[in-house]
């Protein structure tokens, strides 16, 4: 794995408060990396450090070969695609005017606006004033803005929070397409279903510390409960340790017409999170 982002022992203090406390992770080229955690866990702070908005207090970070000393510089920041937690558009201008502004500033090709709008299915909104768009549309346009100049790395801070499920799914499709074009994406979320669908690699952040990280399926596997549950029509559930389950138990259950469900309990990513951090998300 060639790492595009490497973060080592990152700490951030705001006065006496530790917002980040020894954070380590790597993001491989072309991967979608998800930083998961409840609000206040330090997701935005991590993003802002990597996008040059917040200075680090300790540790090191490297992105695209730039070290954290370069993070405040324009030469670095202009290479990134950024959707921050409070990014916004010019309300009085049209969608096209907004995108045209950034297209020209970044020196991207003329065709790019049409291309990105087609990409998110918003070509019809092109000449609409931004103030007339729905929240979800604005968010999609902001992502368009972030990818106009084909950045190698895209930082998205809670790209789908407070959006309806349909828009959320559209954005997921969009992100998978962007990933398909070779872009490395780092996103934050407190939506576990989102992380499961999108991420190649996730890290669980809680109170400024990463408690575990890995591929979602590996994490689920390593935190699985070795139990088999047999549910009867009467509502009774019999649970067996996997080690004690034998062919006999299983076959009996399988042919028992009173049994309505047999399953192993494979935890969802949210359940793993809860086990690891002892906290619910959100």
């Amino acid at each position: 794995m060639t790492a595009v982002i490497t973060v080592q022992d990152l700490t951030k203090r705001f006065g006496s408060e530790r917002a980040l406390d020894g954070v380590d992770f790597e993001v491989g080229r072309g991967d979608i990396f998800g930083l998961l955690g409840p609000s206040g866990s330090g997701k935005t702070t991590t993003m802002k450090i990597l996008t040059g908005e917040v200075e680090i207090s300790g540790g090191t970070a490297e992105v695209l070969g730039f070290t954290d000393r370069d993070f405040g510089r324009s030469a670095y920041v202009k290479q990134l695609g950024i959707l921050s937690d409070n990014s916004s558009l010019y309300d009085r201008l049209t969608v096209k005017d907004n995108l045209e502004l950034f297209r020209k500033l970044y020196g991207a090709g003329r065709h790019r606006i049409q291309e990105v709008l087609e990409h998110v299915g918003l070509t019809e909104q092109r000449d609409k004033k931004v103030s007339l768009l729905s929240k979800g549309m604005k968010q999609r346009i902001l992502i368009c803005k972030a990818i106009l100049h084909r950045p190698e790395v895209l930082f998205l801070d809670e790209p789908t929070s407070a959006l309806d499920p349909v828009t959320t799914e559209r954005i997921h499709d969009m992100l998978l397409t962007i990933k398909g074009q070779g872009t490395t994406i780092m996103l934050t979320t407190h939506n576990m279903a989102e992380a499961t669908v999108l991420c190649d690699h996730v890290a669980f952040l809680s109170n400024g510390r990463i408690l575990d990280q890995g591929r979602p399926d590996n994490l689920r596997h390593s935190y699985k409960n070795n139990k088999i549950h047999v549910t009867y029509r009467t509502g009774i559930i019999k649970s067996y340790e996997r080690s004690e389950v034998n062919k006999n138990i299983l076959e009996t259950a399988l042919f028992d017409s009173n049994v309505i469900d047999i399953r192993s309990d494979y935890p969802s990513l949210g359940e793993v999170f809860k086990k690891v951090t002892g906290r619910e998300l959100v």
């Binding site: 996008t51 040059g52 908005e53 324009s74 920041v77 202009k78 990134l80 950024i82 921050s84 409070n86 990014s87 916004s88 558009l89 010019y90 309300d91 950034f102 500033l105 970044y106 020196g107 803005k145």
Partner: peptide, 12 residues
């Protein structure tokens, strides 16, 4: 409106 951030992050 936090649009300045977007401009400053661009090559401008």
């Amino acid at each position: 409106k936090n649009t300045l951030r977007g401009l400053v992050q661009s090559p401008a």
